[in-house]
């Protein structure tokens, strides 16, 4: 009995004290908590999602004068935390994988456009790329499409059900359009980390791997007789996106050189008159019940931050392309993107 009493007393006292400090912290017209938790859809603190989120969240916290912390909890725990947080104490930052998982029918991925509120986009990672061994017979994506049409089997190492697979699906779709019935020659080798994908290439177990400019650029600089040497064949970003990166490019590869691997120089057709492109975009996700004023508040703060122009420098230094769109615009834009890829994925299923 005594214990229960002391418990209650303490809780009451503590809550009173904390309630006061919390309300004092919150800004006047901004119904955001003094301690904002930002979960991300990745468990890695060395990856692009974390890096990009921490750049944006640090700036945001400064601007709103709150504490904000990025927690690398991963996809499912991230969605769960977001779902539980009705009052906007937790928000999420993730990339196109959020809806691609649903499109690929991966277990546990909800329809984010239905279940959550899609918030502002913040940046693009333009680095999503496909690579072949340096001594590969395939000089370009057209070579690969032709070879598949010719009956050659082409193995591609990807991580299934996400950003890594979408380019693969586009390739398969391109083969289907040009050589109907031959798309089965493009075979996915499902694997995990970049290390595993690279390893499959070193083993000669696959012909093409999904990778990134950031992680694989140095491998493209190795001499051809090195077992580890690779060559870019395709960067999925839009031409305009790559054009916005720093002129120096990444490592020893200049922007000029990177532009050789994007459409229209490399063509993977999506429809008769349009090439497939994919920009890996990062955006906020909110709980369905989040206060619209809080959403507006984050939008406004981000708009100010992007107006100041410093964040762009910081993002570019880390090979991100700044890409701020306020919530509403971002939501309809991403929905459109979602529908576009949905067509490709469904066409391949049928």
């Amino acid at each position: 009995m005594k214990a229960i009493w002391s418990k209650t007393c303490l809780a009451v006292v503590a809550s009173a004290a904390i309630g006061m400090s919390a309300s004092a912290q919150a800004a006047d017209d901004c119904p955001l908590p003094g301690n904002l938790r930002v979960v991300i859809g990745s468990t890695s603190t060395g990856g692009d999602t974390y890096q990009n989120s921490s750049i944006v969240v640090d700036q945001l916290a400064d601007k709103l004068d709150i504490n904000a912390k990025v927690d690398a909890v991963g996809v499912m725990p991230g969605f769960q935390a977001l779902e539980r947080s009705r009052h906007g104490n937790t928000v999420m930052i993730f990339h196109d994988g959020a809806y691609l998982g649903n499109l690929y029918g991966v277990n546990g991925y909800p329809d984010i456009f239905d279940k959550f509120i899609v918030g502002p986009t913040i940046a693009i990672n333009p680095g999503n790329a496909y690579l072949v061994p340096k001594d590969s017979p395939y000089q370009s994506m057209s070579d690969i499409i032709e070879a598949a049409g010719d009956g050659k089997q082409i193995k591609v190492a990807i991580q299934p059900g996400s950003v890594s697979e979408i380019g693969f699906s586009a390739l398969k779709n391109a083969v289907r359009m040009k050589y109907p019935g031959k798309e089965g020659n493009i075979v996915a080798v499902n694997t995990g980390s970049q290390a595993d994908k690279n390893q499959l290439l070193f083993d000669g177990a696959v012909d093409v791997i999904n990778g990134s400019v950031q992680a694989n650029e140095q491998y493209t600089q190795l001499p051809a007789d090195d077992q580890k040497a690779m060559r870019f064949v395709w960067i999925t970003a839009r031409e305009q996106t790559i054009a916005e990166t720093d002129e120096a490019g990444m490592g020893d590869t200049t922007r000029e050189q990177l532009l050789q691997y994007v459409t229209p120089n490399v063509s993977v057709p999506m429809t008769a008159d349009q090439d497939f492109t994919f920009d890996k975009e990062f955006f906020f996700l909110y709980n369905k019940d989040m206060d619209p004023a809080a959403i507006q508040c984050i939008d406004d703060a981000l708009a100010e931050i992007y107006d100041e122009g410093e964040i762009q420098q910081q993002q570019k230094r880390s090979f991100f392309v700044p890409d701020f769109k306020p919530s509403q615009e971002a939501a309809s834009y991403l929905k459109e993107k979602n529908d576009q890829y949905k067509t490709i994925i469904n066409d391949l299923k049928g």
């Binding site: 890695s44 603190t45 060395g46 990856g47 692009d48 974390y50 890096q51 921490s54 950031q214 992680a215 694989n216 650029e217 140095q218 491998y219 600089q221 190795l222 090195d226 580890k228 990444m250 490592g251 020893d252 230094r317 880390s318 090979f319």
Partner: peptide
């Protein structure tokens, strides 16, 4: 070391075979 990699990327340093 998976987290250490973050320290390099935060500073804009690529780690790879040429590092």
């Amino acid at each position: 070391t998976a987290i250490l990699i973050g320290a390099f990327t935060l500073q804009g340093i690529q780690v790879g075979p040429l590092f």
